[in-house]
Amino acid sequence: MITLNHYLLLSAILFCIGLYGALSKKNAIAILICIELMLNAVNINLVAFTKFLTPGDLTGQIFAIFVIVVAACEIAVGLAIIIAIYRDRSSVDVENLDWLKW
């Protein structure tokens, strides 16, 4: 029997993988994908909670859809920026993207 805890565990693992990737990857695209992973971990949480705690209600699913939409927008903007940076620098290595510092 798969309980809520299994979902939460899956989601936590997924989130940690995403977080690790987001903090350690050098490639900007990889970081974006990792952020995507984290968002999906959240989605799993949302859907799972609705399923187990308030069955018959669609709050979690609706939220998940919102998150997906926002994530899509974010990816679109993020990729656009990354492409712009690539055109300028021929590199998307975040180690080198420190122009915002002081």
Binding site: L23, S24, E95, L97, D98, K101, W102
Partner: peptide
């Protein structure tokens, strides 16, 4: 104080 701002995204994230 501005040296705290390394400009590295991942440090900020951390």
């Amino acid at each position: 104080g501005r040296y705290i701002h390394t400009g590295s995204l991942q440090t900020y994230g951390l």
